[in-house]
């Protein structure tokens, strides 16, 4: 793939940093591999509100990214849903060219989830990963600081925790990287805070191959 778009759909405040960590780490790994890379948030989804859908974008390219200043990923090759109920109600498949990959954080199987996916015929594969379970995600008050929840982090300007992917983002990054090869595992792994969850997820993906060849 000479030009790849990755779009992450997440929930404002509670999973915002984790969504951002996915695009930022993939872009940073792409840079390490000598690619042109860009990461950004959807400009009008911010400032985020608790639970509101927010989108994060990453673009990787072998050549200069000429659409650098456009606001949205118009043709996402890879879409990630950080929270499973987002599978209904939003057209996250819009613009996906044939051969795409959909990654969902869910304890359900791809065979169950696929019925909710609009335009699934464009997919080459659907990947389910139980990121919350693998990362031992628990909403405990005293853990909020180490989890993704961060009310200061809107706009991506200041984050209390400088750790990248301390929680559910780690298995999701593993799912994206292993199923698509967008960047190499060895380029991205050193950045990930929760390496245990990252490595565990590599062996716990539920991958459902579909009609299209991977683009």
């Amino acid at each position: 793939m000479s030009y790849t778009e990755l779009t992450v759909w997440t929930r404002g405040i509670i999973m915002d940093k984790e969504g951002r960590d996915i695009v930022n780490s993939v872009a940073a790994a792409g840079r390490l591999e000598g690619k042109f890379a860009q990461a950004m948030e959807n400009y009008v989804d911010n400032p985020d509100r608790t639970n509101a859908p927010t989108r994060k974008y990453c673009r990787l390219s072998e050549s200069a990214i000429e659409n650098e200043l456009t606001y949205e990923n118009e043709q996402p090759n890879i879409v990630v849903l950080v929270e499973q109920t987002m599978v209904k109600g939003w057209d996250y498949m819009r613009g996906m060219p044939p051969g795409g990959t959909l990654v969902i954080n869910t304890h359900y199987t791809p065979e169950y989830m696929i019925r909710f996916v609009p335009g699934a015929e464009r997919l080459a594969q659907m990947v389910c990963v139980d990121a919350a379970h693998i990362a031992h995600h628990k909403w405990l008050y005293y853990r909020l600081g180490e989890l993704g929840l961060d009310r200061l982090s809107t706009e991506g300007a200041a984050e209390r925790s400088t750790a990248i992917a301390p929680d559910i983002a780690a298995p999701l990054i593993a799912a994206v990287v292993k199923s698509t090869g967008i960047v190499k595992i060895e380029s991205i792994e050193p950045m990930i805070a929760n390496k245990t969850a990252f490595r565990a997820a590599l062996d716990q993906l539920h991958v459902m191959p579909l009609g299209q060849a991977v683009a």
Binding site: N46, E155, G156, A157
Partner: peptide, 13 residues
Amino acid sequence: IRPYTATMIALAQ
């Protein structure tokens, strides 16, 4: 005020 807010947040931190 957006988008300047991000600069202000970063400096506060």
